[in-house]
Each structure stands twice: as C-alpha cells, then as structure tokens.
Amino acid sequence: MAAETGTPTTLTLKSNDDELFSVAESAAILSVTIRNMVEDGCAGGVIPLDNVDGKTLASVITYMNGISAIPADEEKKKSYRDKFLSDKDFETLADMVLAANYLNMSCLMDAVSAKIAQVMEKKSVGWVRRKFGIENDYTPEEEAAVKEEHKWTFEGVETDDDN
C-alpha cells in the first residue's frame, strides 16, 4: 500500500452511469464499503459503485476530499459539513443520503439526514407525500381524525410554493 512507495495511493471509482473518478485512498476510506474493499484487496482496479450516479459521486468525492483535509477538529468539520450542504436542494440531498447509506459513511449520513430534517421541518403533509412518493392511505375521515388530534401542529406550516 501507500507506505511502500511513499506516494499516496489513488483509487478509481466508477459510477453507475460509467463515469470514472480518481480519489486518494486516504479520503475514500471514509466510506466503510470502500475501506472493506481496500482491506480485502479488492480495490486494485476500478471500483464499481452500482448504486451511485456520477453527479452524486462527484459531490460525495468533493466531501471526502474536503473533510479529510481538516485535521481532527470537530468544530471545523461541522462547519465544513454545514457549508457543503447549505446550497443543496431536496433532490440532491435525497441522492446523497442514499449514497451515504450505500457507501456506509456515517458522518455524511448524519449530516445529510439532519439537513433533510431541517428542510422538512416546516413543510406540509402534502409536500412530504410528494417528495417521498408516499401514497395517502387514510380515508378522508381517518385523515381528518389524525389531523384533529394534533391540530396545533398545522399552524405556521409553509405554503407549498415549490414542487
């Protein structure tokens, strides 16, 4: 591995739409999935990541490089994560949470799911159904009853302006 040659080892990752990415092994092993492959000696050639598309993988690699450049300082890492996620829309965040889950990156998973929660916080029930693709399986009476039970939580909800 890297120690033998003195130069950092680089891994090649392939997205499910066949884009190739080079990334330093030291950054890529933030993903437990990739780390296991490296440890098992299966990371020699191209590592196919069948569940991540190129756009998302590019973003995840930016994160891997960014966060691994920060020394052990939890405050700085947190502010990097906040900044990294600040301009991402719901769809991108959804892609990232799934990629983080697949790649087994707990720090990214925590940060992205917290960001999704922050985006959802003031949203309407209809918005959540649409974004998560959930079918309303309540009868109108049942739904009215559930809403009535917690009716104060419907105050101050954002109107559905966006898609």
């Binding site: 999704i116 929660a117 959802m120 029930v125 959930i134 399986d137 559930v146 917690h150």
Partner: peptide, 21 residues
C-alpha cells in the same frame, strides 16, 4: 433512512407528519 431523518425532526413536525400515511 426514514427513521434516521425523522429522529432529527422537532416533535411538532413529527406529530404533523403522522398524517402523511
């Protein structure tokens, strides 16, 4: 994943989202 996200929401939002499904 859903649990991961929901566990980070405030109580008020969670009670509202009981109406989702």
């Amino acid at each position: 994943i859903i649990t991961e996200i929901l566990s980070k929401l405030p109580v008020n939002s969670l009670l509202r989202f009981k109406s989702v499904s």
